[in-house]
Deep mutational scan, measured.
Amino acid sequence: DNLVIALHSYEPSHDGDLGFEKGEQLRILEQSGEWWKAQSLTTGQEGFIPFNFVAKA
């Protein structure tokens, strides 16, 4: 599955970004460039995340 774990917390800075906490698990929905579309397994919310803040779970 496309699961990743957050290496750092991220505060959203643009509409459509997904904020998350360090250690949170996310499911990657789309990989494109440096911003990936993801869904939080904690909150169920979707949005874009910086790819370098996460690692394969």
Rank of each mutant, 00 (worst) to 15 (best):
D1A: 11
D1S: 10
N2G: 09
L3A: 02
L3V: 13
L3R: 06
L3Q: 06
V4K: 01
I5C: 09
A6N: 02
L7H: 06
L7P: 05
H8M: 14
S9G: 09
Y10P: 01
Y10W: 11
E11P: 07
P12M: 06
P12A: 12
P12C: 06
P12S: 14
P12Y: 05
S13A: 14
S13E: 14
S13C: 14
S13H: 13
H14I: 08
H14N: 13
H14Q: 12
H14W: 09
H14S: 10
D15I: 13
D15R: 10
D15A: 13
G16P: 02
G16C: 12
G16Y: 09
G16E: 07
L18Q: 01
L18H: 02
L18G: 01
L18N: 01
G19Y: 06
F20R: 01
E21H: 13
E21D: 08
K22T: 06
K22L: 07
G23M: 03
G23V: 00
G23W: 05
G23L: 03
Q25Y: 15
Q25N: 08
L26H: 01
L26N: 01
L26F: 07
L26W: 00
L26P: 00
R27P: 01
R27C: 08
R27V: 11
I28V: 10
I28Q: 00
L29G: 02
L29V: 08
L29D: 04
E30P: 00
Q31T: 10
S32V: 14
G33E: 04
G33Y: 04
G33Q: 03
G33M: 03
G33W: 03
W35L: 09
W35G: 07
W36S: 02
W36H: 02
W36A: 10
K37W: 15
K37H: 09
K37T: 07
A38I: 07
Q39S: 07
Q39T: 07
Q39C: 09
L41G: 03
L41Y: 05
T43R: 02
T43C: 04
G44C: 10
G44T: 04
G44S: 05
Q45W: 07
Q45N: 10
G47N: 00
G47T: 01
F48P: 00
F48G: 01
I49K: 00
I49Q: 00
P50I: 06
F51K: 15
F53L: 13
F53V: 06
V54P: 02
V54H: 02
V54Q: 02
V54R: 00
V54E: 04
A55N: 07
A55Q: 12
K56R: 10
K56V: 14
K56S: 13
K56F: 15
A57H: 12
A57R: 07
A57V: 15
